[in-house]
């Protein structure tokens, strides 16, 4: 059974239709990439799943729960955690305090400590900068902090919104290496990316979104070879 299934989802901003009859499934342990141009509705889909924007019609199911009408903080409780686009960290808190906020809902303190160690092992830079104010980190470090913070909330499904945005190529590689590592830890990932090339390389399944609708669904490698995709997104 699918971990996440989205059925005929419609999202409106006022009169503007952002998503139209979008259906998508994510199986446990997969990395699913969602690619598409600016304004295709990629971020809207993630926001709908994490409850930040309301749903006009359709349904979102995670395991056997319906998330469609849940408040954002309840959805996090179910294990669906989003890393918002644009390296959004708590800039006036320290690295440590940022990570503490990630574990905000958890009561299993011993487990949290172990996850801290795992996060620091994955991103050693963050251990060095533990007591530094997060706003003074470099761009790449901030993206890592945002991802580490999401991991500390012990997600079952991680929603990543444009993790490569605004990063130097070498940092993009680093970020995607850590996405692979997170997947190996057993976290399922739904990834939204404009950088289709890197996204499809690690994706098991790729969806192509165009003006609010899904137009293609293939395995990652197949999409990389697809002529239409090549023309439109890989250049």
């Amino acid at each position: 059974m699918a971990l996440l299934s989205v059925d005929e989802l419609c999202v409106h901003y006022g009169k503007i239709e952002a998503l139209h009859d979008v259906s998508l499934t994510v199986d446990e342990g997969q990395v699913v990439a969602l690619i598409g141009a600016n304004g295709a509705g990629k971020s809207s889909l993630l926001k709908a799943i994490s409850g930040i924007v309301g749903v006009a019609s359709g349904s979102i199911r995670f395991r056997d729960q319906v998330l469609t009408d849940c408040a954002p903080h309840e959805i996090v409780r179910h294990g669906v955690v989003q890393v918002p686009e644009g390296r959004r960290i708590f800039s006036r808190l320290t690295v440590q305090e940022n990570l503490d906020m990630g574990a905000f809902l958890r009561r299993d303190h011993a487990e949290v400590r172990r996850d801290f160690e795992r996060a620091f092992a994955m991103f050693p830079r963050l251990r060095e900068r533990r007591n530094q104010v997060a706003g003074t980190l470099s761009g790449g470090e901030q993206q890592m902090l945002a991802m580490a913070r999401a991991l500390l909330s012990k997600p079952q499904l991680l929603l990543l919104d444009e993790p490569s945005m605004g990063l130097a190529p070498i940092l993009v590689d680093l970020v995607f290496d850590s996405i692979e590592a997170i997947r190996k830890d057993g976290v399922t990932i739904l990834l939204v990316e404009q950088n289709a090339f890197v996204a499809l390389q690690i994706a098991d399944i790729g969806y192509v979104l165009e003006t609010g609708s899904i137009v293609l669904r293939e395995s990652g490698p197949a999409l990389l070879e697809n002529d239409a995709v090549k023309r439109a997104y890989l250049g």
């Binding site: 989003q82 959004r88 960290i89 006036r92 909330s153």
Partner: peptide
């Protein structure tokens, strides 16, 4: 204060 949306995305009511 630093980021309402992220705070919400981490489960803060």
């Amino acid at each position: 204060r630093d980021d309402e949306d992220v705070a919400q995305a981490l489960g803060i009511n």
